[in-house]
C-alpha cells in the first residue's frame, strides 16, 4: 500500500485526488491526454432522472481568481448515462467511479440512486443537494437540515453503496446540515459546492449570465471551503471529501489537515486539463517537503 493511499467509506483509493463532478465529464476528454487510471477516482457529471439541456447561454463568466458557472445540470438522464456513458467510461477507467446525483424531489433522488446502485463500477453515490442553479428544487434541500436529512434517508433506503452527501456553502450553519446528514445515515460528506455569485456586463448593463446568478469556483473560494471543512470535521465522525478551489498538491495537504479524507479538484481541470495528474505527481514531493510519511496520517491533523 502506497504512501498516498486513503480509504474513503471503506473503498480504497490509490491517492486522495478526485476530479469533481461537472469539471470532468465522463472522463473521455481527459483520457485523450493522459491515463486517467492514475486518479484516486473521479465524480462524473451530475445525473438526474430525465435528460436536461440546462440553462441558456451564456453559462460561464470570469470571476476574480475563479469562475462562475450556471450550466444548470445539463446531462442525458440516468438511463442514457447507464446505457451509453458508463460502458464508454469503463473503456478508459477501470477503478470504482463516483456517481454524482441531483434531483428535484425525493422520488427522483430515490429512482436515480436505485438505478445507479445496480451498476458495478459505481463505488460511491455523491448526492448533490446543493446545486444553486436550478430554480425550486436543488437549493432548498441543501439549505434546510431537515430536508437534507430526508434526502439522505431516502437515498440510503435504496442503495448499499456508500452515500456521500454534497453540501452547499450557501448556508449560515454548515455544521448543522452536516450533522443532520450524518444522523440520517450518510456515509460521508463532501463540501463545498459553488458559492452563489454574479457579474454584470458594463457595456450591456445586464448580468453576464443568462441565469443572472451562477456558482463561483476556483482558487477564490479555497479559504471558504477550507473553513467549512474545518467546521464540519469538528462536528461529524464520518469521512469528509474536501473541495473548493483546490489547485495544487499543497492545497490537497491543507484540505486534509483541515479534516478531509479525500480531496476533489474542480475548476482547475478546466483551466489546465492536466491539473489533477500534475497534483498527483507532485504529492510525494510535497509530502517530503513537510516531513509526512503517509498522507492518511495528516487527516484532521491541524485540529488541536
Amino acid at each position: 500500500m502506497g504512501r498516498l493511499n486513503v480509504s474513503l467509506c471503506g473503498v480504497e483509493l490509490e491517492n486522495p485526488v478526485i476530479p469533481a463532478s461537472g469539471t470532468f465529464g465522463y472522463g473521455y476528454e481527459f483520457a485523450e491526454l493522459y491515463d486517467i487510471n492514475c486518479l484516486g477516482t473521479f465524480s462524473f457529471k451530475g445525473t438526474t432522472r430525465s435528460p436536461r439541456f440546462g440553462n441558456p447561454a451564456p453559462r460561464i463568466a470570469e470571476g476574480c481568481d475563479g469562475m462562475l458557472n450556471a450550466v444548470g445540470l445539463q446531462n442525458p438522464g440516468v438511463d442514457a448515462v447507464i446505457r451509453q456513458e458508463l460502458p464508454k467510461l469503463s473503456q478508459v477507467f477501470r477503478k470504482p467511479v463516483m456517481a454524482n446525483v441531483s434531483g428535484f424531489s425525493l422520488d427522483e433522488y430515490a429512482e436515480v440512486c436505485e438505478k445507479l446502485d445496480r451498476e458495478a463500477q459505481v463505488g460511491w453515490l455523491e448526492v448533490n443537494i446543493s446545486c444553486p442553479n436550478v430554480h425550486g428544487g436543488g437549493m432548498s434541500f441543501g439549505t434546510d437540515p431537515v430536508l437534507a436529512g430526508e434526502v439522505t434517508r431516502t437515498v440510503k433506503a435504496v442503495t448499499k453503496k456508500p452515500v456521500i452527501m454534497k453540501l452547499s456553502p450557501n448556508v449560515t450553519d454548515i455544521a448543522a446540515i452536516a450533522r443532520s446528514c450524518e444522523e440520517a445515515g450518510a456515509d460521508g460528506i463532501s463540501l463545498i459546492n459553488t458559492l452563489m455569485g454574479m457579474r454584470i456586463d458594463l457595456r450591456k448593463r445586464r448580468p453576464v449570465l443568462a441565469n443572472t446568478t451562477g456558482g463561483l469556483s476556483g482558487p477564490a473560494v479555497f479559504p471558504v471551503a477550507l473553513r467549512m471543512v474545518w467546521q464540519v470535521y469538528e462536528t461529524v465522525n464520518i469521512p469528509i471529501v474536501g473541495l473548493g478551489g483546490v489547485s495544487s498538491a499543497e492545497d490537497v495537504v491543507e484540505m486534509m489537515l483541515a479534516g478531509a479524507t479525500a480531496v476533489e479538484v474542480g475548476a482547475a481541470n478546466l483551466i489546465d486539463p492536466l491539473a489533477s495528474k500534475k497534483i498527483i505527481d507532485e504529492l510525494p514531493l510535497v509530502l517530503d517537503r513537510y516531513g509526512i510519511n503517509n498522507i492518511k496520517d495528516i487527516i484532521g491533523g491541524a485540529h488541536g
Partner: peptide
C-alpha cells in the same frame, strides 16, 4: 461562444441542435 474549458468538459458552451445538445467547443 463564451466557454469555460474549451475542450468539452464543462458544458458551458452548449447549444441546442436538431441532433440534441452540442458543445460548441468540442
Amino acid at each position: 461562444a463564451r466557454m469555460g474549458c474549451g475542450f468539452g468538459a464543462c458544458m458551458g458552451c452548449t447549444r441546442q441542435t436538431v441532433n440534441g445538445p452540442r458543445r460548441v467547443c468540442k
